[in-house]
Amino acid sequence: MPVSTWSRALCVCLLIGMFPSLPLHAEEVRSESMLANTCAGCHGTLGASAGEVMPTIGGMDKGYLVEVLTDYKTGRRPSTIMGRIMQGYGDREISAIASFYAAQPWVSTDRVAVADQLAEAPALHERYCESCHQDGGRSQDAESPRMAGQWAGYLQYAMQACRDGERCHPRKMRNRVAELSDAQIAALAHFYESQK
C-alpha cells in the first residue's frame, strides 16, 4: 500500500477515534428507486396498482404519502401488513419512498361504473366530500388524497374503516363518513373510481 493511502487510512481511523459516537458501519444511503421498487410487487410497477383493494400510490401527494407511511410505522394508522413492513425504514427512507411515488404519473383504473352503482353518489359527494376532495376527487394535497380513478375496492374499505373508527385520515372526516350507509359508501367508491 502506498504511503499516501496509509496516511489516509490512518486519518480515517483517527477521525473515528475522535468521534466515538459514529457507527463503525455507517448505514449506506439507499436510492429512492431502490427503496421504492420493493413496493411494486404489491402496489404495481411505479405504483400503478392492478387492483382491487390494493391502492394505486404512484402520483399521490408526497406529504400525504409521508404522513401515511409514518402513521403505519408508529401504529397510528392500523393496518394488516403495512405496519410490519414500515418498521424497516427510517424517516429519511420514508421520505425517499414518498418522493419517488409522488414523482410518478397517476394512472387511473380503466373501469367505468354502471349507472345503478352510482345511485345518489354525485349528491353525496357534493354534500359530504367536496369541500376537501374537490374536482370530483381529482384534487389532492397532504391532507386529502386523490380519489378519482382509484380502485373502488380500496376506497370502499378505506371509508368503512374510517366510519368504524379503525382509521381516519384526517380525523375530521369521521364525522362525515359516520352518516353514510354501506350502500352509500359503495356508491361513492364507484363514483370516484369512475372519475378519471
Binding site: C42, S49, A50, E52
Partner: peptide, 15 residues
C-alpha cells in the same frame, strides 16, 4: 388479507 392475497397476485404478475 385474503383479498390482499389475490391483489398480491394481480400486482406481482402485472409487475
Amino acid at each position: 388479507e385474503q383479498q390482499f392475497a389475490l391483489d398480491w397476485f394481480r400486482n406481482i404478475t402485472s409487475d
